[in-house]
């Protein structure tokens, strides 16, 4: 009871602190902007811990954060094995192949107006479909190992990437293209010196959307069959064994991998398109 009450008190106190910080005189500084969400996240973790202990929630329903962290560190070798199988082999290779293929296809599609008018509506349509449903088919074709996971990822990232890149290649104005023509620039010079640089923000948008899709595709594909390792495999078998601390540890790995992947792409964007108007301060 005391633990539950203290969870409530800590919640109220932290919320009060955040309200003061957010409405205070220094609210716009970078430090406060980072501090406020950090406090909020910490509050949730503390309240979660206290409530689980105070109400004696059984492990099969919700493990406490401390318990999850303990499992995370004690099972680190297994988690690393799963990470390697799902992320490095499945998601990453599929991401590279899928985005690369979509990029090349986009350049081809952009070159021929007929293709663009035909493929774009189809691509937009496919992008809204439940593509994870192709996972059982691809698992049957490519076997249980990482190749089938990479194939699912390729299919999942292809169309969002294609649609974004094609939209980016349309970004230049008639004036800019005319200027290139007055310089005597041909198709390839215009493409590499004007249109691809102008398309960069769109291309990176597609790359960023694809990071999450890649991870989802690789994990969900493992629900349909996998070797005895991988994040999706571990999640589904641990759920079966009611070892929820292990499931949460995998979720921590997935969250870390997902945000790190996104972060790396965002960093690459910041360092290559700093000159673009949408990034200039």
């Amino acid at each position: 009871m005391i633990l539950v009450l203290s969870a409530l008190i800590i919640w109220i106190a932290m919320w009060g602190l955040n309200t003061r910080l957010a409405n205070g005189p220094h609210a716009e500084t970078r430090f406060i902007r980072l501090l406020v969400p950090a406090i909020f996240g910490l509050t949730i973790l503390v309240a979660w811990e206290l409530l689980v202990r105070g109400l004696a929630v059984p492990l099969v329903i919700l493990p406490a954060p401390s318990h999850v962290m303990a499992t995370f560190f004690s099972e680190l070798p297994t988690l690393w094995l799963d990470f390697k199988q799902t992320f490095l082999k499945g998601a990453l290779s599929g991401y590279v192949i899928g985005c690369g293929a979509a990029f090349l296809a986009a350049i081809l599609v952009d070159r021929y107006d007929f293709l663009r008018r035909g493929l774009l509506p189809v691509g937009n349509f496919v992008a809204a479909l439940p593509i994870v449903g192709t996972a059982p088919i691809l698992v049957m074709w490519f076997g249980f190992d990482w190749q089938s996971k990479a194939a699912v990822v390729v299919v999942m990232v292809f169309f969002p990437m294609l649609v974004n890149t094609v939209a980016g290649l349309q970004e230049t104005t008639v004036m800019q293209r005319d200027l290139m023509r007055t310089y005597g620039a041909g198709y390839w010079a215009t493409l590499t010196k004007l249109r691809l640089p102008a398309a960069m923000p769109f291309i990176f948008n597609g790359l960023k959307i694809s990071t999450t899709l890649a991870l989802i595709g690789a994990i969900v594909a493992e629900f349909f069959g996998s070797p005895t390792m991988g994040m999706g495999f571990r999640i589904s078998t641990s759920v079966g064994q009611l070892a929820l601390d292990m499931v949460w540890a995998e979720i921590v790995v997935a969250a870390l991998a997902g945000s790190a992947f996104y972060g790396v792409v965002a960093l690459a964007e910041a360092s290559t398109t700093f000159w673009h108007p949408s990034h200039r301060k």
Partner: peptide, 12 residues
Amino acid sequence: SQTIPILAIAPM
């Protein structure tokens, strides 16, 4: 949270 594969927790 948009960068996290939320779908992974569905079985749980």
